[in-house]
């Protein structure tokens, strides 16, 4: 039984032009990616901005329509479900949004924000509902007394935790975290990330962790997929990716991580130059004639690379 499997997912956006606004081309935001999520793990989806990682996440949760492919959750293909049928699975997949400022409705009090999924999925009396919201607030480290406040009275980190509390209310199985800390400053990032790890253990959650920050992904993830131009270029465990990167794009990404040790500065520079030279020399080896990325091939049990 597969827990969550994304199979040959494609999300294309039509480009219209010409006199009759005909479809003349497609933007291939996500172009044929396949990935598997195991229960309880954290899968990091990494790539530069615009590579389609957010689109992948939003498609899994149903905010974008898949052009082709399957999203199989507990042996049911979510892309084929009608909206009403999908409602049943909404509870199990939840999302933490990137921007804690726009993802909370400024006109709603915290209790209304966190209780929104409760009101949709469970019938609770106002008293029970308030108690549950207060429990959740406590769980995410906020004062249970502040449930009648408005979002603008909280700091960015606190707002993100309200967002997390909202995602947790219906006890989901999978949480898609779409760059959950990129809008927060570094000191708060660590706080929120460690908190996310804690609740993962507590609720046995599975994360699809979308980020462009390799440091954070290394801290959070068990397995990592590297995306580039809407396709996966490399997939493997954390050790596979960081210790034995095979694809040139992965190497380039890793080389871009700044080294804080000034004594190794020259060494690091040399490494970056090397990677860049290899990229220019061996470009054809990694990309086909149209600059497209090859299909993934397994090179070990856990490690796959897009090589011809």
């Amino acid at each position: 039984m597969t827990f969550l499997r994304v199979e040959n997912l494609k999300v294309y956006y039509p480009v219209r032009g010409g006199f009759f606004r005909r479809v003349i081309d497609h933007v291939k935001a996500v172009d044929d990616i396949t990935l598997d999520l195991q229960p309880g793990e954290t899968y990091g989806l990494v790539g530069e901005s615009g590579c389609g990682k957010t689109t992948t996440g939003r498609t899994i949760i149903g905010l974008n329509k898949a052009t082709a492919g399957k999203i199989i959750f507990n042996d049911i293909d979510l892309t084929r479900l009608k909206r009403r049928q999908f409602h049943k699975y909404r509870k199990d997949i939840q999302m933490i949004f990137q921007d804690p400022y726009s993802s909370l409705n400024p006109k709603k009090r915290v209790i209304d924000i966190i209780a929104e999924p409760i009101r949709n999925f469970e019938k609770l009396s106002p008293k029970e509902e308030r108690r549950k919201v207060q429990d959740l607030m406590e769980k995410v480290g906020l004062s249970p007394d502040s449930i009648f406040k408005y979002p603008h009275e909280f700091s960015g980190g606190q707002r993100q935790r309200i967002g997390i509390a909202r995602a947790l209310t219906v006890n989901p199985k999978i949480i898609i975290a779409d760059e959950p800390v990129s809008a927060l400053d570094v000191s708060v990032q660590a706080q929120v990330l460690n908190f996310m790890k804690d609740i993962q253990k507590e609720y046995n959650l599975t994360y699809l962790f979308i980020s462009h920050d390799l440091g954070i992904v290394r801290h959070m993830s068990d397995r990592i997929g590297i995306m580039y131009k809407g396709r996966l270029v490399e997939e493997g465990t954390k050790e596979n990716i960081f210790n034995q990167p095979k694809h040139i794009y992965t190497k380039r990404l890793l080389a871009a991580i700044p080294d804080v040790n000034p004594e190794k500065r020259d060494e690091h520079l040399l490494m970056r130059k090397e990677v860049n030279e290899e990229f220019e020399r061996n470009y054809e080896k990694y990309f086909d004639a149209e600059g497209k990325i090859f299909d993934l091939k397994k090179i070990s049990d856990t490690h796959s690379v897009a090589l011809p």
């Binding site: 909404r90 999302m95 990137q98 993802s103 409705n105 999924p117 909202r166």
Partner: peptide, 13 residues
């Protein structure tokens, strides 16, 4: 276009 609308959708509203 704001995220809170998308959030409400994912919460099943």
């Amino acid at each position: 276009e704001l995220e809170y609308v998308a959030a409400s959708k994912t919460l099943g509203t």
